[in-house]
Amino acid sequence: MSDQIVFCKGGGCTAKLGAGVLSHVLERLPKGIRDENLLIGYDSRDDAAVYRISEDTAIVQTLDFFPPMVEDPYLFGQIAATNALSDVYAMGGDVRTALNIVCFPEDMDLNILGEIMRGGSEKVTEAGGSLAGGHSIADDSVKYGLSVTGVVHPKKIYPNNQGQPGDVLILTKKLGVGIICTANRIQEASREAMDEAVRSMTTLNRRASEICREYEIHACTDVTGFGFLGHLHEMMDGRHSCRIRAGEVPVMSEALHYAEEFYLTAAAQKNRNHLKDHVRFEGISFAMEEVFFDPQTSGGLLIAVPAGQAEELQKKLREEGLPAGITGEIIEKEETEIYVI
């Protein structure tokens, strides 16, 4: 039991630095000489870097790691790997290789580490990739994730900020896993709620990304630590506004109940503070607001697609068992960036 107490003390994407702090640092980094083959870098706030190596091939590079948000080491490994692999899918790419990133206390049971890495390895295999090595350090707490390399055609990349007025927004997974995991840490979450959250966090975005390739995708991102509204803010890129219909957004029902009980995360409050000048709520409950700010671990894809293709895309996603919802639309830039009604 002592290992469990040390093992899970609040993690997943709730452990990420806030968007405001991160932007403050990144804006001051020297850009260096522009490389015309670097199609997407960190300056675009996109999900991964994309580098062209030939006319028909570009490599997608990303990494992600964090502390545990569940007690089961094997499930934690699966979730962390699924989350790291997601960035490749958000760019429209396919996974090729992955490297383990491990921080682990030397005095903790090594069987725990073995279970974490087993879970991660299985998800890399499910993604069609090869686990090719990694790096580990002794640390006072557990952290795990992957560095992932994928491939994509240079002309078929999904940027996160090229949506157009008139586009419809589709979300492929339900919101609320951060709130549910928080409730679970204090033993207030039901088994059903936690099982639903784990199923969501261990579902690869692979099929969602592959289905999207049949449609004209203008923008795509995966919803993780900055919450639904934070990643939507990045998608608008200061150039557009959007209207979100709260009743159409897929949400885990028990997350609303736990938000009403104030089982909240500090990371969600950072997201709220960062976005306070960009969002306007009309007739939205406090609990639903919290769900919108809730950091998602291994969240779904948020997609901008032409209105005429949205219903068919949603139908295809749902046929794959994904709880995809048409959540709103992009509009011309207005005084308020994000309207939630």
Rank of each mutant, 00 (worst) to 15 (best):
P73Y: 13
Y74C: 04
L75P: 03
G77M: 10
G77W: 11
G77S: 15
Q78K: 15
I79P: 00
I79Y: 00
I79D: 02
A80Y: 05
N83S: 15
N83F: 08
N83L: 14
A84C: 14
L85I: 06
V88Q: 14
V88C: 14
V88D: 08
Y89I: 00
Y89K: 03
A90S: 15
A90K: 02
M91E: 04
G93S: 02
D94R: 13
D94H: 05
D94A: 09
D94Q: 08
V95H: 01
R96W: 01
T97Y: 06
L99V: 10
L99M: 14
L99P: 04
I101Q: 14
I101F: 13
V102D: 14
C103G: 10
C103R: 07
C103Q: 13
D107E: 10
D107R: 15
D109Y: 11
D109I: 05
N111I: 02
N111V: 04
I112V: 01
I112S: 00
L113D: 02
G114V: 01
G114M: 04
E115M: 10
E115D: 15
M117T: 01
M117C: 01
M117K: 07
R118A: 14
G119C: 07
G119Q: 13
G120I: 15
E122A: 04
K123V: 06
V124G: 07
E126Y: 09
E126H: 12
E126D: 15
A127Y: 05
A127N: 12
G128D: 01
G128C: 10
G129R: 06
G129L: 08
S130D: 13
S130Q: 09
L131N: 07
A132I: 15
A132Y: 15
G133T: 00
G134I: 14
H135S: 03
S136C: 03
S136T: 12
S136D: 12
I137M: 06
S141I: 09
V142Y: 09
V142H: 12
V142I: 02
K143N: 05
K143A: 15
G145T: 10
G145N: 03
S147R: 03
V148P: 03
T149D: 02
V151Y: 15
V151W: 08
H153S: 06
H153M: 01
P154C: 11
P154F: 04
K155V: 03
K155N: 06
K155R: 07
K156M: 01
K156N: 12
K156Q: 09
Y158W: 13
Y158T: 00
N160T: 02
N161V: 06
N161L: 13
Q162D: 08
Q162A: 04
G163W: 12
G163E: 00
P165V: 02
P165R: 10
G166R: 08
D167R: 13
D167W: 14
V168D: 03
V168E: 15
V168M: 11
L169C: 12
L169Y: 13
L169R: 07
L171W: 09
L171H: 08
L171Q: 09
L171M: 05
